[in-house]
Design a protein around this nucleic acid. Structure first.
Length: 973
RNA sequence: GCCGAGGUGGCGGAAUUGGCAGACGCGCUGGACUCAAAAUCCAGUGAUCGAAAGGUCAUGAGGGUUCGACCCCCUCCCUCGGCACCA
C-alpha cells in the first residue's frame, strides 16, 4: 500500500461523499429505515468575511466529531451551515475595497464554501441559509411585522448609542466599555427616533428560563448579570407646598428614615417642569448642559468624583418622618434606570455618603449592626469600645490578648463593661487607664449608634448580649498611671501600637472592627441590623422593616432590570429594510404580507451619511410609495435591521429552508426543535444568545411556532457549549500586526485536514473557555499518530485471528482494552472531551503495536477514529474491504461513516485482577496484582506476607486497617 | 466593589469525583539505524538526597477535617470572564 498521501485521499473522498449526499438529514427517516431519533446540532454560522481562519476551523471541524459520532450511533443528525451575510463588517470591508457590498459578500460566500469543503465536515448543504437572500429576509421582515402588530416592536425617541465612525446607532449590547463593539470608536449618546424591540417585557422569562437549561453556570451567570434584576420599592416623596411628588426606586426601604436628601438625574423631567420654582435655575441648567456633554465613557470612567447642584427654592418631604429635605441633581444618578431619582441615605450607601461629605449634607445613621446570633438566654451587658490614636505617629492602640479560648482571643481595641450608673465616657477613660495607663486623652468622636454583639463567654460560661458604644480618642501626652497589669492583673494581654492602615485587618472581632472602621476610618456600614432613629420602627430587624416601612408610607414593591429595549434600526445600507411605510395621515403602517419581501434596492451610493439617516433615504424612487391604508402618497422606512435580527431565527429556517409559504412548517419545527446542541463563541453570551432566546420566546407567545408550540417549549437551545480561543504560537491572540497568524489552509496542504481538525480537538477541553496556543510541533504529534495508524492498516498481513507469538492472556487483555476504549471514546465525545478521547485512542494504538491485532480489531479501531479523521479512515476502510481474500466479502460502496458505532460489552469491562494499593499511614508502600473477588481477610494476609510491607511496618501492630475492595488497603500504625 | 470560572512538570493538559498525582501529546536527554543529517524506532524524563535499593518534598499560599485531600471546609493571593456611580 502506498504512503499516506493525504492530499489525494482527502480530495477523493470529499468528492465521493458529496456525490452520494452522505450527510443530508431527512426530516424523517426514509421508509423502510429504522426510525432514528432526530438530533439538531447547530454551530454559529460565519460572517462571509472572505477567508477561513483557524477560529472557523476550531468552531466547525471539532463539533463535527461529535456530529459524526451521533450519526454512527444511529441518530438522524441535522448539521446545517449557512452565512450571516448582512451587516457592518461585510459592508465596511466592501467599502474599504471600493466594492459593492452585495458583490463582495456573495463572492466571499462562494470562496468560503470551497474552504469549508476542505474541512471534511459533514454539513448538510441542502439546507444552506444566507440571510441576505430575499427568500430569507422576506421572513425576517414578516416576523418583525408580527412583533410590530403585537406591540413588541415600536418606534420611539430615546437616548441611544451612536457610533460616529460607523455612523449608525448601536444596541446596548454592542457597546463595550463605552466603545463600539465593531470598530472601537467612542460611542456618543444621542436622542433619536429609533425602532426597538421590547426585550424588557421578557426580562423575567429570560431569567427564569435559564434555570432549566443545560448550560454552564458561567454562561447563565453572564446573562443574569446583563439582565440585572433587583427587587426594591417605589416610594413617593411629596414636594413641599405642592401637589407634586417625586418617585424614587430603592432596594433599601428599611433605611428610609435615613434619607436626608433626594438626587435626580440631570435628565429628569421634573427639573424642566418646575423651572419656575427653582430659584437657581441658571446654575442648574449649566450643570445639565455640562453633564450632557460628557460621553458615556467619561461618565463611567472619568474619576468618580461626585458633582451636583442643589435645586434651590424647592424641597421634598421624607414621607417617613415628614421632614423637609433638599433636592439635588447629580450625574451619578442615571436617567435610564429606576425612576431616574433616588433617595440618598448617606449613612448606608457609599455613593450617597461621598456626595454628602462633599456638599456637607446631613448623615443620619438608622441601622445598628448586629454581630453573632441571639440564642435567647443572653445576659445583657453594656460596654464601651475605644480606639486610641497617637496623632504624632498615626498609630492605634491594639490589645493583643494572645490565643485565648474566648472570643476575646486575638487583637482588640480597648473594651470594657460599664458600671452601674456610669457615664459612657467615664467608663472609656477608666478602661483605657486600667489597661494601658494613658490618662491624657481628648475625645474626638462618639458613635451615634450602638453595636449589638452576641457571643458565648468562656470565662463566665454563659451567652452574652452586649450593647456597645464606640468612642474615639486622641492621645494628648504620654502621661500614664499604673495599670492593672502593674497591679498584678491575671489577664494576659499586651499593649501594642499599630499603624492605622493595618488595624482594620488585624482586629479579630466584628464589633471592634465596625467601630474602628466607622469612627477612625470614617467608613459607612452596609450591614443589616436593627433600626434606630426610625420612629416606631426602632428595634425592628432591618430585614423585615423594609416591608413595614413600604406599607407605612404607601409605597409599593417593584422589580427593576438593567436590561434595556433592543434598538434594532441601523442607518446603514447592507441590511434588511424595515418593512414599514410612513404616511402623514395613517402614521407608521406595516407593509402588507403580499408585498413582502421589501427588497433592498441596488443603489450606487451606499456610503453611510452620518446624519442619522440611512443611505437608502437617497434612493428617492424606492422611498416614494403609497400608503397601504389610505393609498395616499407615503414614504418607506429607510433604516435597516441590525444583523443580530437576522441571526435571531436562522436556526428555524434551516429546518425548512425552501418553504415559500412560511418561515418554517409547524410540523417540521416539531420534529427538530429545540436545538439539541448549540456550539459557539463566548462573545455572543449577552448578544446573539440573549437576542435569539428573546426572539424565540416572543414567537412562541405569538403562536408562530405552530400548534405544537407547547411541546417545543420556549427555549430554543437545549444545550449550549462555549468554545475557547486558539492563540498564535507565541501565546498571543492571532493578529496580522503581530505576525503570528496561522493559516489553516497551509497546514491542510502540508499535513492534511484530518491532522488539523484532530490537532484542534486535542488542544484541550473544548467546552472550557480557555485559550490554547497553536504549537507547530504539537500538530506533528497528531500526524505521527495518523502515520502509525496508516502503517498498521497498510501492513495488513500482520492481521491474524491470533498470532502464535501472543499468549492467550495478552490477547484477552487487548480485547478488554478495546471495550474500555469504545466506552471511553464514546462518552468523551458526548461530553465534548475530545482531547481525552484522542488520548485513549493513542493509548490503544500503543498497545496494538506491541501486540498482534486481528482484522476485526483494526476495523473497530478505525471506526473509533472515523469521527476524528474521516478521510483517512474512509480510505483504510475501503482498502480493507478490497481484500476479499482475507475471508471477508468486499464491502462495495458503503462508507465507514454509515457504519454503526462499535458496541462494548459491559462484561468485558470487568477485570478479574487489580493492582492493590498498599498504604501504611496513608503513604504508598507497595502495590501488587490480586484477584478481584478476594476477601478482606485474604487481602490482609497476602499483604502482610510481603517483604516490603514487613519492612515498612517494622514489626508494629496495625492499629486500624482500612480496606477499599478493588482498590487499596491502608494500615494505620 | 459584586458575581462566575480557574490556578497541577519546561509547555498543552490527565486524574474513576476522597484512594498510585503528572495519563496522552509536545519538548528535552541518551541509544539504535546512517558516511552524515532528517525521518523512524527504543529507553529515560516533577524536584531533591542517594552508587543503588530506597527515602523525602511537591497540585497558587496558609490553616482545618480525614486512615488518606489536586478533590471537602475556612482564610488569603493571583489569572481570566461578566456586571458596575444600577440606588
Amino acid at each position: 500500500m502506498a504512503f499516506y498521501d493525504h492530499q489525494k485521499i482527502e480530495k477523493k473522498w470529499r468528492k465521493e461523499w458529496a456525490k452520494k449526499k452522505l450527510y443530508g438529514a431527512p426530516d424523517r427517516p426514509k421508509a423502510g429505515q429504522p426510525r432514528a431519533e432526530n438530533f439538531y446540532a447547530l454551530v454559529e454560522f460565519p460572517y462571509p468575511s472572505g477567508n477561513l481562519h483557524t477560529g472557523h476551523w476550531y468552531a466547525f471541524s471539532v463539533p463535527d466529531i461529535f456530529v459524526r459520532l451521533k450519526r454512527m450511533k444511529g441518530m438522524n443528525v441535522m448539521f446545517p451551515m449557512g452565512f450571516d451575510a448582512f451587516g457592518l463588517p461585510a459592508e465596511n470591508a466592501a467599502i474599504k475595497r471600493g466594492l459593492n457590498p452585495k458583490k463582495w459578500t456573495y463572492e466571499n460566500i462562494a470562496y468560503m464554501k470551497k474552504q469549508l469543503d476542505s474541512m471534511g465536515a459533514s454539513f448538510d448543504w441542502s439546507r444552506e441559509v444566507i440571510t441576505a437572500d430575499p427568500e430569507y429576509y422576506k421572513w425576517t421582515q414578516w416576523i418583525f411585522l408580527q412583533f410590530l402588530k403585537n406591540g413588541l416592536a415600536y418606534q420611539a425617541e430615546t437616548a441611544v448609542n451612536w457610533c460616529p465612525k460607523d455612523k449608525t446607532v448601536l444596541a446596548n449590547e454592542q457597546v463595550v466599555n463605552g466603545r463600539c463593539d465593531r470598530c472601537g470608536a467612542e460611542v456618543e449618546q444621542r436622542k433619536m427616533k429609533q425602532w426597538m424591540l421590547k426585550i424588557t417585557d421578557y426580562a423575567e422569562k429570560l431569567l427564569s428560563g435559564l434555570e432549566k437549561l443545560d448550560w454552564k453556570e458561567e454562561i447563565k451567570e453572564a446573562q443574569r448579570n446583563w439582565i440585572g434584576k433587583s427587587e426594591g420599592a417605589l416610594l413617593k416623596f411629596p414636594i413641599s407646598n405642592s401637589q407634586f411628588s417625586i418617585d424614587v426606586f430603592t432596594t433599601r426601604p428599611d433605611t428610609l428614615f435615613g434619607a436626608t436628601y433626594l438626587v435626580l438625574a440631570p435628565e429628569h423631567e421634573f427639573i424642566e417642569e418646575h423651572k419656575l420654582q427653582i430659584t437657581n435655575y441658571k446654575e442648574v441648567k449649566e450643570y445639565i448642559e455640562k453633564a450632557k456633554r460628557k460621553t458615556q465613557l467619561e461618565r463611567q470612567k472619568g474619576e468618580k468624583e461626585k458633582t451636583g447642584v442643589e435645586l434651590k427654592g424647592i424641597k421634598a418631604i421624607n414621607p417617613a418622618n415628614g421632614e423637609e429635605i433638599p433636592i439635588w441633581i447629580a450625574d451619578y444618578v442615571l436617567s435610564g434606570y429606576g425612576t431616574g431619582a433616588i433617595m440618598a441615605v448617606p449613612a448606608h450607601d457609599e455613593r450617597d455618603f461621598e456626595f454628602a461629605e462633599k456638599f456637607r449634607l446631613p448623615v443620619v445613621n438608622v441601622i445598628e449592626p448586629i454581630f453573632g446570633a441571639p440564642q435567647g438566654d443572653e445576659v445583657k451587658k453594656k460596654a464601651v469600645i475605644s480606639a486610641v490614636r497617637d496623632p504624632k505617629t498615626d498609630k492605634i492602640i491594639v490589645l493583643n490578648w494572645g490565643p485565648r479560648q474566648s472570643r476575646h482571643g486575638g487583637n482588640m481595641l480597648i473594651g470594657g463593661t460599664m458600671n452601674e450608673g456610669e457615664e459612657i465616657e467615664t467608663t472609656a477613660r477608666r478602661e483605657i487607664a486600667e489597661e494601658t495607663g494613658y490618662t491624657d486623652l481628648k475625645l474626638i468622636k462618639k458613635s451615634d449608634v450602638t453595636g449589638h454583639g452576641y457571643f458565648y463567654s468562656n470565662t463566665k460560661n454563659h451567652n452574652v448580649h452586649v450593647d456597645a458604644y464606640g468612642l474615639y480618642f486622641e492621645l494628648q501626652s504620654e502621661k500614664k498611671q499604673k495599670t492593672n497589669l502593674d497591679h498584678g492583673e491575671k489577664e494576659k494581654f499586651s499593649v501594642e501600637w499599630h499603624p492605622v492602615s493595618n488595624v482594620a485587618d488585624m482586629l479579630h472581632d466584628g464589633i471592634h472592627e465596625y467601630f474602628f472602621r466607622t469612627m477612625v476610618l470614617g467608613e459607612i456600614c452596609k450591614k443589616n441590623g436593627v433600626l434606630t432613629n426610625s420612629g416606631k420602627f426602632d428595634g425592628m430587624d432591618s430585614g423585615s422593616a423594609g416591608k413595614a416601612i413600604i406599607e407605612f408610607v404607601g409605597g409599593k414593591k417593584v422589580t427593576q432590570y438593567k436590561l434595556r429595549d433592543w434598538v434594532v434600526s441601523r442607518q446603514r445600507y447592507w441590511g434588511v429594510p424595515i418593512p414599514v411605510i410612513h404616511c402623514s395621515k395613517c402614521g407608521a403602517e406595516p407593509v402588507p404580507d403580499k408585498d413582502l419581501p421589501i427588497k433592498l434596492p441596488d443603489i450606487k451610493d451606499y456610503l453611510p451619511t452620518g446624519e442619522g439617516k440611512s443611505p437608502l433615504a437617497k434612493a428617492e424612487k424606492w422611498v416614494k410609495t403609497k400608503c397601504p391604508s389610505c393609498k395616499g402618497s407615503a414614504e418607506r422606512e429607510t433604516d435597516t435591521l441590525d444583523t443580530f435580527v437576522d441571526s435571531s431565527w436562522y436556526f428555524l429556517r434551516y429546518i425548512d429552508p425552501k418553504n415559500k409559504k412560511k418561515f418554517a412548517a409547524g410540523e417540521k419545527m416539531k420534529l427538530w426543535m429545540p436545538v439539541d446542541l448549540y456550539s459557539g463563541g463566548a462573545e455572543h453570551t449577552t448578544m446573539h444568545l440573549l437576542y435569539s432566546r428573546f426572539w424565540y420566546k416572543a414567537m412562541f407567545d405569538l403562536g408562530l411556532l405552530g400548534g405544537e408550540a407547547a411541546k417545543l417549549g420556549d427555549e430554543p437551545f437545549k444545550m449550549r457549549k462555549n468554545r475557547g480561543l486558539v492563540l498564535g504560537p507565541d501565546g498571543q491572540k492571532m493578529s496580522k500586526s503581530k505576525g503570528n497568524v496561522i493559516d489553516p489552509d497551509e497546514y491542510v496542504k502540508k499535513l492534511g485536514s484530518d491532522t488539523v481538525r484532530m490537532y484542534l480537538a486535542f488542544l484541550g477541553p473544548y467546552d472550557q473557555v480557555g485559550s490554547y496556543p497553536w504549537d507547530p510541533q504539537g500538530i506533528l504529534g497528531i500526524r505521527r499518530f495518523l502515520d502509525r495508524v496508516w502503517k498498521m492498516g497498510a501492513s495488513s498481513s500482520k492481521f491474524s485471528v491470533l498470532a502464535p507469538s501472543v499468549s492467550l492472556e495478552d490477547a484477552i487483555i487487548l480485547i478488554k482494552h478495546f471495550h474500555k476504549t469504545i466506552k471511553k471514546v464514546g462518552e468523551d465525545i458526548e461530553n465534548f472531551r475530545f482531547n481525552t478521547a484522542i488520548s485513549a485512542l493513542m493509548i490503544l494504538l500503543n498497545e496494538m503495536e506491541k501486540s498482534q491485532v486481528s482484522r476485526e480489531n483494526f476495523e473497530t479501531f478505525i471506526k473509533l477514529l472515523a469521527p476524528f479523521a474521516p478521510h483517512m479512515t474512509e480510505e483504510l476502510w475501503h482498502k480493507l474491504g478490497d481484500k476479499s481474500a482475507q475471508g471477508r466479502p468486499a464491502l462495495g460502496w458503503k462508507s465507514i461513516h454509515l457504519e454503526s458505532w462499535p458496541e462494548f460489552d459491559p462484561k468485558q469491562l470487568e477485570e478479574d485482577f487489580f493492582e492493590l494499593i498498599v498504604q501504611i499511614n496513608g503513604k504508598l508502600r507497595d502495590t501488587f496484582r490480586i484477584s478481584r473477588g478476594i476477601s478482606q481477610a485474604e487481602a490482609e494476609k497476602l499483604t502482610l506476607a510481603r517483604e516490603k510491607v514487613k519492612l515498612a511496618l517494622e514489626n508494629k501492630k496495625p492499629r486500624k486497617i482500612i480496606y477499599v475492595p478493588g482498590r487499596l488497603i491502608n494500615f494505620v500504625v
